[in-house]
Design a protein around this nucleic acid. Structure first.
Length: 572
RNA sequence: GCGCCUGUAGCUCAGUCGGAUAGAGCAACUGCCUUCUAAGCAGUAGGCCACUGGUUCGAAUCCAGUCAGGCGCACCA
């Protein structure tokens, strides 16, 4: 049952009825807005249809509104139950529709019947979505920025799945190229240092403490006599071979750490796509480049091969695929990778990127276009920076080389739930202040606890009711619901009813923060409701009705938190 | 210089495919625990929606320009 759709039908048939009687002329219904009224005096729903029709009818908006409003008054639900209580013309020509309480009670019935399925829809029509996110280099632990990307990507996946999209979550592993070579060399140098060799870490090395840990583990497994000849750290092919065991060990070990952290964060990928697999066993990158050359989308200049991103995607300049020395750029892999993605038959490709990568968008779009794909299937969610605070003061990070706050550290301190919730409190493309003390605090100003507490509080009330020997037989539920007639009851139900639409819009816009806001609002309605209305009383009927309303509220909170990947504890 | 993002209450931010008197949380001030979880609630106060112009019955929302901040414009990844 979708409240809004019913209203649209009612308005539609009202217009048809008015036209049948020759009261208005317009044949097809233009795009109109039906919105939940912001104020009680504006009814439950409002529409601007009369103001849109007025110019076409060449009549004043209020006059058109009056005609349609009269027809809406007569509207009956398909079951024949009167649905509209009152219908008024207001302001410049709005039609405000007031619905019967029974309408809202039927929505509550629907929530209880659907249970954990409430909020799911077919809005996405089964479209296949590839959502690529995190994709951190396996050269170090995940930092706080990756954490936000993980939270946003995973929540987006859950929300889109709930809205009827077929979502595949993918992590692209940059497991070849210069950065893993640097990683292997860094570990190697640390290994030599462990053996007492006097050797300095070159400037462009990974300098974090974790590299030492990897070196220690390598030594534990391979002993002290593993390839202890000193390399010329400038690097050459022979040395890459010598480094290979260090590279392999380190990237596997660091990728395992990333997987462990993501699992602890509640993020599970369907697919781990290795960049190296684009080159072996089959060189897909070379094939892609050949195709681009053949089709005239790549050109040579200064000994390098350039992708014509200017003509393909209005880029500022063309971009290099193959360098003059014959080696390929990162873009070359990515071009081939995105071609593969599109060929795998997805309707929508979503990438979650740091906002500092926005210049890269045109290049990927250009590549898709060059390979004959529709470039508009690519959607990019840009993630802004996270400013880590403690009691309002910035936490020093990223200043000293190789030092940064890891996702693991923050998770260990504030917990995965608070961490995820905080990452989803703002729209992705807005900078986020993350206050560690606030996230940990067990106070109402901490939104995570505010929402979770709402769920726990309701579970506690239900437990209390059971202890008091209250039970609600299934065959008396509808009678009990009918007793929920107060403004407080109906207002709470109205907000619960919004959930389906919030999920749908959040999915279509790919904006998970909308769900976070919705839940904070819902908790902000329930807590005062609880404060004003005692649930368990001597009135058996009303107690039963309110317990059902509480049950539905807890269900919606739980469903919503589930979409964010945050738990809904029964006790706190 | 060019491009993208941002500019809304003291602070952090919702609201932006145009709608009625612009919202929330925090901070501030005033109150509420013999009562189902006070990890909560009630109330007060707080605004030239950066600025200027345009489109419209109607603009925080759309268009143009200006100002301010962030980011990007590698034969790096």
């Amino acid at each position: 049952m979708k409240s809004r759709h019913n209203i649209k039908e009612i308005i539609n048939s009202a217009v048809q009825a008015a036209r049948a009687e020759g009261l208005i002329k317009i044949g097809t219904l233009p795009d109109i807005v039906i919105e939940k009224s912001r104020k009680d005096e504006f009814g439950d729903f409002a529409t601007n249809i009369a103001m849109v029709l007025a110019p076409l009818e060449k009549r004043p908006p209020r006059e058109v509104a009056a005609i349609i409003a009269a027809k809406i008054q007569d509207a009956k639900e398909t079951t024949g139950v009167p649905l509209v209580k009152k219908c008024e013309v207001a302001g410049p020509g709005f039609i405000n529709i007031f619905l019967m309480e029974t309408y809202w009670l039927s929505i509550l019935r629907d929530i209880l019947d659907k249970g954990e399925a409430f909020g799911r829809s077919e809005a996405g029509a089964g479209k296949k979505v590839l959502l690529e996110f995190v994709s951190a280099n396996p050269t170090g632990p995940l930092h706080i920025g990756h954490g936000r990307g993980a939270a946003v990507g995973d929540a987006t996946a859950r929300i889109m799945a709930a809205a009827g999209y077929a979502v595949t979550k993918e992590f692209y592993i940059n497991d070849i190229g210069k950065q893993v070579l640097t990683l292997g060399r860094s570990v190697y140098i640390r290994y030599l240092q462990l053996l007492g060799k006097k050797i300095e870490l070159p400037e462009d090395s990974y300098k974090g403490e974790y590299i030492k840990d990897v070196a220690i583990e390598f030594r534990k497994e391979n002993g002290d006599n593993f390839n202890n000849g000193i390399l010329d750290i400038q690097g050459n092919n022979r040395q890459i071979e010598l480094l290979q065991p260090f590279i392999d060990f380190a990237k596997k070990r660091l990728l395992d750490d990333i997987k462990t952290d993501l699992a602890a964060f509640g993020v599970a990928f369907d697919n781990w796509f290795s960049e190296a697999s684009l080159y072996k066993p089959e060189n897909i990158v070379d094939k892609a480049i050949e195709t681009l050359k053949k089709d005239g989308f790549a050109r040579e200049e200064d000994g390098a091969l350039w992708l014509k991103t200017m003509e393909l995607a209005n880029d500022d300049k063309d971009r290099v695929l193959v360098k003059a020395d014959g080696s390929k750029t990162y873009l070359a892999s990515d071009v081939a990778y995105h071609n593969e993605k599109a060929k795998r038959g997805f309707d929508i490709l979503i990438n979650v990127w740091g906002a500092d990568h926005h210049g890269y968008e045109a290049r990927i779009r250009a590549a898709l276009k060059a390979f004959g794909h529709d470039p508009t299937i690519l959607k990019i969610i840009f993630i802004q920076l996270v400013a880590l605070l403690r009691n309002g003061a910035p936490v020093a990070m990223g200043k000293r080389e190789g030092e940064f706050v890891t996702l693991r550290q923050v998770m260990d301190e504030v917990g995965a739930d608070a961490c995820r919730f905080f990452f989803l409190m703002r729209k992705a493309d807005a900078q986020l202040d993350f206050d560690l003390e606030l996230a940990k605090s067990q106070a109402p100003e901490n939104p995570v606890y505010y929402v979770q507490y709402c769920h726990a509080r309701i579970r506690s009330i239900i437990d209390y009711a059971k202890e008091q020997g209250v039970n609600v037989p299934a065959d008396t539920e509808d009678e009990a619901l009918a007793l929920l007639t107060s403004k407080d009851d109906i207002d709470l139900i109205k907000h619960l009813a919004l959930f389906e639409e919030v999920v749908e819009k959040s999915a279509l816009a790919m904006e998970p923060h909308r769900v976070t806001y919705y839940l904070t609002e819902l908790a902000g309605i329930f807590h005062p409701y609880y404060n004003r209305n005692r649930i368990v009383t001597d009135d058996a009927g009303l107690t039963a009705g309110r317990l059902l309303l509480c049950t539905a509220t807890a269900q919606v909170i739980k469903n919503g938190l589930g979409l964010l990947g945050v738990s809904a504890p029964d006790k706190m």
